[in-house]
Amino acid sequence: MLGLRQSIPWAEGLETMLFAEAVQFQSAGGVPVEVIDAIPGAPARAIAERRRFTTLAAQTTYGDWRATIAWQQDERKRSGNTLATERFLEVTGGRVLGAGFTLDAGWQFATLARDNGTGTRGQGPIALLRYRAEF
């Protein structure tokens, strides 16, 4: 896993945080067993899988308000059947509500993987109400 973060202060109370993260897993969900499409009549066999998550984001805050843009990629490589790479682009705005609550709303563009190895695209609104307590 690798992660980088850099804060850029612009003025009193105005700041931009840049994020970059990458993590890779080898057969993290176990070793899947599948019938390999390219070999007619072949029995199901275990296949190796590597999964890599990548995130690039920037969040600008001003007091209790914030605006965020984030790009994420979920890349899966297998020794057998191929899988489409999933990608997400999110643009959101939000604010701290108080008492540990925050609210963010925005729009997400996504390329999602299908089981047959192809991808499909979609977009739509997103919202997140979050509560955080410190002990």
Rank of each mutant, 00 (worst) to 15 (best):
residue 63 G to L: 04
residue 9 P to C: 12
residue 26 Q to W: 12
residue 6 Q to W: 14
residue 110 A to P: 09
residue 99 A to N: 11
residue 107 W to F: 14
residue 40 P to W: 10
residue 121 R to W: 05
residue 106 G to K: 03
residue 32 P to E: 07
residue 43 P to C: 02
residue 60 T to I: 03
residue 127 A to Y: 00
residue 2 L to P: 04
residue 67 A to S: 12
residue 87 R to N: 15
residue 105 A to D: 01
residue 122 G to E: 04
residue 35 V to D: 10
residue 61 T to R: 15
residue 129 L to G: 01
residue 101 F to Q: 02
residue 81 N to S: 10
residue 93 G to Y: 05
residue 24 Q to V: 11
residue 130 R to Y: 01
residue 75 E to T: 09
residue 130 R to T: 12
residue 71 W to P: 00
residue 105 A to N: 01
residue 62 Y to P: 02
residue 80 G to N: 06
residue 36 I to E: 06
residue 102 T to G: 07
residue 81 N to A: 11
residue 59 Q to K: 12
residue 54 T to E: 11
residue 115 D to N: 10
residue 30 G to L: 06
residue 129 L to W: 00
residue 36 I to S: 03
residue 99 A to E: 13
residue 66 R to A: 04
residue 31 V to Q: 13
residue 58 A to H: 04
residue 112 L to D: 06
residue 77 K to F: 06
residue 50 R to V: 08
residue 108 Q to M: 13
residue 68 T to G: 04
residue 78 R to N: 12
residue 94 G to P: 00
residue 56 L to Q: 11
residue 19 F to W: 11
residue 76 R to A: 07
residue 67 A to F: 07
residue 68 T to M: 10
residue 121 R to I: 02
residue 87 R to S: 15
residue 57 A to E: 07
residue 64 D to L: 04
residue 91 V to I: 13
residue 129 L to S: 02
residue 33 V to D: 09
residue 102 T to D: 11
residue 132 R to Q: 15
residue 76 R to H: 05
residue 27 S to F: 04
residue 128 L to C: 05
residue 101 F to P: 00
residue 5 R to F: 08
residue 42 A to P: 02
residue 107 W to R: 11
residue 6 Q to N: 11
residue 55 T to K: 11
residue 17 M to V: 14
residue 10 W to C: 04
residue 119 G to P: 00
residue 17 M to G: 03
residue 3 G to M: 07
residue 39 I to T: 13
residue 15 E to G: 10
residue 24 Q to Y: 10
residue 128 L to R: 14
residue 71 W to E: 03
residue 59 Q to S: 12
residue 57 A to W: 02
residue 66 R to M: 05
residue 77 K to E: 13
residue 33 V to L: 13
residue 67 A to D: 03
residue 131 Y to Q: 05
residue 75 E to H: 11
residue 23 V to R: 12
